[in-house]
Design a protein around this nucleic acid. Sequence first.
DNA 1: GCGACAG
DNA 2: ATCTTGTCGC
Length: 278
Amino acid sequence: MTGTTQAARHDWNLTPAEAIQLQRELAGRVRMDRLLRPPETVAGLDVAFGPGRSHVYAVVAVYRLTPLELIDRSVAVLPVTFPYVPGLLSFREAPALLAALEQLAVRPDCLLVDGHGYAHPRRFGLACHLGVLLEMPSVGCAKSVLVGQYEEPTPERGEWTPLRDGDEVVGAAVRTRSGVRPVFVSVGHLVDLASAIQITLAASSGKYRIPEPLREADRLSRMLAREGDPRLAQRYSRVVRSRTSRRHGPAPDYRSDVTTTARGTSARRRPARRKSKR
DNA sequence: GCGACAG
DNA sequence: ATCTTGTCGC
């Protein structure tokens, strides 16, 4: 899949009302019925915001599952152009994450996203959005619930209970580490819930609540965001990538099909019209 | 009208 | 998410 999907591209310069309509349309493309052969590599995706919340620092951390180890990383920084609105996270974070994915040296078998997938008001959270645009398997892994209710799973790592929104099972509360709060897993795209849970557990060491790929993406994005220098952050990603790819040999090229650029310096025609609260 | 509300 | 000090526990 190297820039061959035409349908998987759209404008990000939308109003909240337009964004909601787009989600309703794209939600029809989510596929959670396909069986997934066990992935060998999983990419953790997360973002952090720089000083004044002016820029989004996106990081992708690719891990091999056995053994669980970091094999590649990439960074992208873009100006913030959309407010934080529960249910519309994609329009604030996805452009930067897609830009980071484009700079990756290796193509991961699956995406593990910091946020929900199907467990969303319109069944189209950030993980679904990325999976559908890239046409690749993705899993949503959030630290708190957006929609739905669940019963506490027993304390042992590996245990889980369904997350239900009305009669529908939209995800699962998964215990990635014994004795701590569960994480909330849901289908992103091209995986079923059982696989999504397995992938989340496989990416978790058991020493921390957050799966390793997401911990690393979170750690690096926050570190770079604190520096507050977009240009330096992007340069840093190149250094890291050449370093890791040198040790593991040449990696297959990665190309996404999205129109976003890695350097996003051009001003949007329709900038964020209000600041997020809280 | 009053909460709830991924990051 | 980000802003922040100390504190409880392995």
